[in-house]
Simulated scan of single mutants.
Amino acid sequence: MPEPHTIGFAHKKIPAVRGANPKQERSVRTRLRVLLGAAELFTERGFRQASVQDVADRVEVTKGAVYFHYPTKEALALAIVDEHYARWPELLAAVTAEELGPLDTAARMLDRAALAFQDDVIVQAGARLQIERPQIEAELPTPYVDWISLLESLLVSAQEAGELRPDVVPAKAAHSLVSAFFGSQHVSDVLSNREDVVSRWRDMSTLLFHSIRAD
């Protein structure tokens, strides 16, 4: 299995115009409250239907306070997507520390990601903002490609370790796993507000990993 840094997500800090860099603890807390409040609203309503005033009302600050930390609504969206992507290298490091085989590492990564989609509003908002990319006048990263790259690397290692069926092509399998995972969480979002995302992914994961795992 390759070292974590060779299979990890390249966390890309999204360039964005930021407000003043707060120095005081109170300002730092306010900045986080604004970010989480915006994430909640973007998750619930989408980017276009949530205004800066809505964010201010949600976290009980002035509109000016929101603009102090995030000068535009696009800057808020960029910050949320940035934090969304920051979750995955941290998750990979935690899973890698379990020292599983490459195929089990791939499965565990997706299982843990499903939990994040269930519980973490930053992850939820980041996913919705990525879907709404055409509506946002800012350059967001291309979604899914890092996940495909990560899983392909793990599946190549799994193939070398004899963990895959002989007819499995790692690149194709990785693409299928990512498509199934993100499709599963999206369907869960639409039908149950992600309340069943973990159990739905567990069912899908059992089926998919059984189909590629060597007997």
Results as ranks from 00 to 15, higher is better:
residue 160 E to S: 14
residue 59 V to S: 05
residue 40 E to V: 14
residue 43 T to D: 11
residue 199 S to Y: 06
residue 20 A to C: 08
residue 39 A to Y: 01
residue 33 R to W: 14
residue 154 L to W: 07
residue 15 P to Y: 08
residue 103 L to G: 03
residue 2 P to D: 13
residue 139 E to A: 10
residue 140 L to W: 01
residue 135 Q to E: 15
residue 118 Q to K: 14
residue 110 L to I: 07
residue 200 R to I: 12
residue 139 E to I: 12
residue 17 V to P: 07
residue 191 L to H: 11
residue 37 G to C: 06
residue 82 D to H: 05
residue 145 V to I: 15
residue 64 G to C: 07
residue 104 D to R: 14
residue 97 A to R: 13
residue 162 G to L: 02
residue 105 T to K: 12
residue 200 R to S: 12
residue 177 L to D: 07
residue 189 D to E: 12
residue 7 I to A: 03
residue 85 Y to N: 11
residue 125 A to D: 06
residue 15 P to D: 03
residue 127 A to H: 08
residue 188 S to Y: 08
residue 169 V to G: 04
residue 72 T to F: 01
residue 101 G to W: 12
residue 10 A to M: 11
residue 40 E to K: 09
residue 87 R to Y: 06
residue 11 H to K: 08
residue 104 D to S: 08
residue 155 L to T: 04
residue 7 I to L: 13
residue 205 S to C: 05
residue 34 V to N: 02
residue 193 N to R: 11
residue 112 R to S: 10
residue 181 F to L: 03
residue 95 V to T: 03
residue 178 V to K: 00
residue 129 L to D: 05
residue 59 V to D: 08
residue 57 D to Y: 10
residue 116 A to H: 08
residue 203 D to W: 15
residue 141 P to Q: 00
residue 137 E to L: 07
residue 102 P to I: 12
residue 30 T to E: 12
residue 145 V to D: 11
residue 15 P to G: 04
residue 73 K to P: 02
residue 204 M to S: 10
residue 135 Q to T: 15
residue 2 P to L: 15
residue 4 P to N: 06
residue 186 H to F: 12
residue 86 A to P: 06
residue 116 A to P: 00
residue 124 Q to E: 03
residue 201 W to M: 03
residue 87 R to V: 10
residue 179 S to W: 12
residue 207 L to H: 10
residue 158 A to D: 10
residue 80 I to G: 00
residue 118 Q to I: 05
residue 53 Q to I: 09
residue 83 E to Y: 07
residue 183 G to H: 03
residue 148 I to G: 05
residue 35 L to A: 06
residue 92 L to I: 04
residue 98 E to H: 11
residue 61 V to F: 01
residue 32 L to I: 12
residue 205 S to Y: 02
residue 48 R to A: 14
residue 166 P to A: 02
residue 162 G to K: 04
residue 24 Q to C: 07
residue 214 A to I: 10
residue 55 V to H: 00
residue 166 P to K: 01
residue 204 M to D: 10
residue 128 R to L: 09
residue 192 S to V: 13
residue 149 S to R: 15
residue 191 L to E: 13
residue 181 F to Y: 08
residue 13 K to F: 14
residue 109 M to I: 12
residue 72 T to S: 10
residue 167 D to K: 07
residue 49 Q to H: 15
residue 86 A to W: 09
residue 126 G to R: 00
residue 135 Q to H: 11
residue 115 L to R: 03
residue 125 A to Q: 01
residue 108 R to S: 07
residue 186 H to Q: 13
residue 196 D to F: 10
residue 124 Q to I: 10
residue 50 A to V: 10
residue 121 V to L: 05
residue 17 V to Y: 10
residue 152 E to T: 10
residue 81 V to F: 00
residue 59 V to Y: 01
residue 162 G to I: 04
residue 50 A to E: 00
residue 16 A to R: 13
residue 173 A to E: 02
residue 175 H to T: 14
residue 101 G to M: 08
residue 79 A to Q: 06
residue 200 R to F: 13
residue 27 S to V: 12
residue 131 I to W: 14
residue 210 H to C: 07
residue 177 L to P: 02
residue 213 R to C: 07
residue 77 A to S: 02
residue 154 L to I: 11
residue 146 D to G: 09
